[in-house]
Amino acid sequence: MKRHQFRQDALIEVLHKAQELFGFLDSDLMHYVARSLKLPTSRVYGVATFYHFFNLKPKGAHTCVVCMGTACYVKGADQVVAALEQCTGVRAGETTPDGKVSLATARCIGACGIAPAVVYDGVVTARQSPADALANVKGWLGHAA
């Protein structure tokens, strides 16, 4: 925050940094940010919930993001998501109850040349079939076949 000179317009930058450090934005953290930038807490909450990038809940130990951009969609990303949802038992956007895996979809990660793309723990992987994705995610779940 110091780096941004406590400027109110740097709220989004500060939230990015906070999420990077703590993994998600809980109420105490948002309260602290609001106090430091001298903003109403409702403003911080409003901004944090407007942008999809911010999480108000902790994420799983692993994350799997399926790109659902147009190019990926026409090449079958929806089937990848369906397979993963079935395997993990949670819907996209949720985390498994044991906190092991967060499943998410992305609007477009700009990797349309290698569609369908899936990001496993930050690593973009090209041309994923439902079987590929399941193989990757099952290892994380711990009850791998």
Binding site: L39, P40, R43, T49, F50
Partner: peptide, 19 residues
């Protein structure tokens, strides 16, 4: 500055402070 909009689109809600 108590009230604000949170969320977006059809999921928008009026909230107070940190919801």
């Amino acid at each position: 500055g108590t009230l604000n909009l949170a969320g977006r689109g059809t999921g928008s809600m009026i909230i107070t402070d940190l919801n």
